[in-house]
């Protein structure tokens, strides 16, 4: 008799189909430009551009997969890695959703809630960008004005201040060592801040080691 797939197994199967399917469609976009406009890219220019970003972006991409997949679970990851903006939007959105639904990350309930939050967030983002594209002429002078520039320049500090309080309040003991280490690191070697995403796994490793130490001693 044919075995029925579990929810997790079917999530992985559908996830592969959707992610690789949309990934292929994305590659079709530049290919279509080449064919429709007979505009093949100059090889040296293309290689120069790729060389400038590929090593760094693929390293960060790999780190994001290793860090965010355990946090978001299968459904949230297959969706989040297609719709993007993980750090500034999808992961904080999932963290917020865990709190609202009173579930924990890494559980079956957490996986379902993270998927719902990321799906809603992605659709709202797509809708807002669509409205913006349709109304770009009247909106540009407002959103692109120098008066508002400092506000949008500070989106990440404004996000992580509030989110940090919410997370730290629940785990004060867990927060001390990783936050102190990262503050010391980035203040002492400020040039590292520009590639800060690379330090997420370092901070995660420090955080986990410190947590293990405290757990073994019964401090948690």
């Amino acid at each position: 008799m044919k075995r029925v797939m579990t929810y997790e197994e079917s999530t992985h199967m559908w996830g592969k189909i959707w992610v690789w399917g949309i990934g292929t469609l994305l590659l079709m976009f530049p290919l279509a430009i080449c064919i429709v406009f007979d505009a093949w890219p100059p090889i040296t220019g293309l290689l120069k551009g790729l060389w400038a970003i590929l090593p760094m972006y693929w390293a960060v991409g790999t780190i994001e997969v290793l860090t965010y997949v355990p946090m978001l679970g299968a459904g949230g990851s297959y969706l989040g890695f297609i719709t993007g903006s993980l750090t500034m939007l999808k992961v904080p959105c999932a963290v917020n959703a865990f709190d609202k639904a009173d579930v924990k990350a890494g559980t079956e309930e957490g996986e379902a809630v993270a998927t719902i939050a990321i799906a809603v967030s992605s659709m709202v983002t797509l809708a807002i960008i669509l409205v913006g594209v349709l109304l770009i002429t009247p909106l540009t002078p407002i959103l692109d004005s120098p008066v508002l520039e400092p506000a949008f320049d500070q989106l990440l500090p404004a996000l992580f201040g509030g989110l940090g309080v919410a997370l730290i309040a629940k785990n004060v003991k867990l927060a001390i060592v990783p936050i102190a280490s990262m503050l010391i690191l980035f203040i002492a070697v400020p040039q590292l801040a520009s590639s800060g995403a690379m330090f997420v796994p370092v901070a995660a490793a420090i955080s986990i080691l410190a947590a293990r130490f405290m757990y073994k001693r019964g401090w948690l």
């Binding site: 860090t67 946090m71 750090t87 992961v91 990440l156 992580f160 989110l163 940090g164 997370l167 730290i168 785990n171 867990l174 927060a175 990783p178 936050i179 280490s181 990262m182 503050l183 690191l185 980035f186 801040a193 800060g196 995403a197 330090f199 997420v200 796994p201 370092v202 901070a203 995660a204 490793a205 420090i206 955080s207 986990i208 947590a211």
Partner: peptide, 10 residues
Amino acid sequence: MGMISAFLGM
């Protein structure tokens, strides 16, 4: 906490 620490540090 590791993730938030890295971004707070940045």
